[in-house]
Write a protein that binds this DNA or RNA. Structure first.
Length: 282
RNA sequence: GGAGCCGUAGCCAAGUGGUAAGGCCCCGGUCUGCAACACCGUCAUCGCCGGUUCAAAUCCGGCCGGCUCCU
């Protein structure tokens, strides 16, 4: 059985994953693009060693910050695990929708070529893409996606189907409440030493890609460079995290069949029981 | 009590007679190789009342609110 736990930051996914893993004697598998990396602990809100509670955790801490890693790599890594652990219950947790979808649905990452399109305007690129597919879903201004599309050799545009028997469990809470949780969580990260963590990573690896794009890291880098104040940095991280949470909802609501459960923060046992009951009866 | 300035969306803000720029936030969405990415969409009739005018956020009068100065 595969149980996939999704939802925005701070709703209790980590706690639930360990509880379900214990109940089903399963293993927890990471589905978060940042928690793949070693040493990105505080800012990525990675499970702490003591929270793992003896449960086996896979696909956490498998890369150094200097290493590149993408969806295609994740798909391969996840499928290797699903293959190797066929007789175990898998608890897949994380907020990276694309990774989950690419791993569990029949996404095909074909050969890719690296062509330089920098001399083309957005409009020209868009027209090139339209020639291949009249119903293209990519916006004209989205250069990155347009270039990716052109670099792909095979254009598989079929609707991807789910390859495994998966129960998608979503944890959620009211928007206002979520934003409050996010704010508190960010403040806590700073108390736990986020600035130090980023500073150490920066000294060790330099301004590598993952640090330049991960929320909580890119903003602290700006602060360390003296471009923004500490307060501005904190506010920026909160805002970016809110935006991120909203994008996550959009993805999970529209890309996968998620059964949502409201987190009861005063009584998490109740949330857990609701979910166990649902899993038993489905 | 007197004089002046100001009042445009949740916030910042342009527009001084021709039918409300822009940015941020919020909200909604797209999604097969950076996905904690990249990108898209929606969102006001201009403090209130009255007047002038074919036409007013823009001009005039009154009122309300805020700020500064004077007595």
């Amino acid at each position: 059985m595969i149980i996939c736990i999704v939802g925005p930051t701070g709703v209790g996914k980590t706690l639930l994953s360990v509880m379900l893993a214990k109940y089903y004697n399963g293993v927890v598998v990471n589905a978060d693009a940042c928690q793949i990396y070693r040493e990105l602990n505080i800012g990525s809100a990675k499970v702490k060693e003591e929270e793992k509670d003896g449960v086996e955790h896979l696909l956490f801490d498998i890369k150094d910050a200097s290493e590149e890693y993408s969806v295609a790599d994740y798909q391969k890594d996840l499928r290797d695990i699903l293959n190797k652990y066929q007789d175990r219950n898998i608890i897949l947790v994380g907020g990276t929708g694309l990774y989950i979808k690419a791993g569990l649905f029949d996404y095909r990452f074909s050969a890719i070529r690296k062509k330089d399109y920098s001399k083309y305007s957005n409009e020209e690129l868009y027209k090139k893409c339209l020639k291949r597919d009249k119903n293209l879903q990519i916006d004209q201004n989205n250069r990155r996606r347009l270039e990716n599309y052109l670099n792909r050799i095979d254009k598989n545009t079929q609707k991807p189907i789910l390859l495994y028997d998966v129960k998608f469990i979503g944890l959620t809470t009211e928007r206002d409440n979520l934003y409050e949780i996010i704010n508190k969580r960010v403040d806590k990260m700073f108390k736990e030493g986020l600035v130090q963590e980023v500073d150490d990573l920066l000294k060790k690896y330099g301004e590598v890609n993952i640090l330049k794009r991960a929320i909580g890291y890119k903003e602290v880098i700006e602060y360390l460079k003296g471009k923004i104040s500490l307060e501005e940095c904190q506010e920026l991280i909160k805002k970016n995290t809110r935006h991120y949470a909203k994008r996550q909802y959009t993805w999970f609501n529209n890309q996968m069949p998620v059964k949502w459960f409201n987190t009861n923060f005063n009584n998490f046992e109740e949330t857990y029981n609701n979910i166990i009951n649902y899993l038993k009866s489905n």
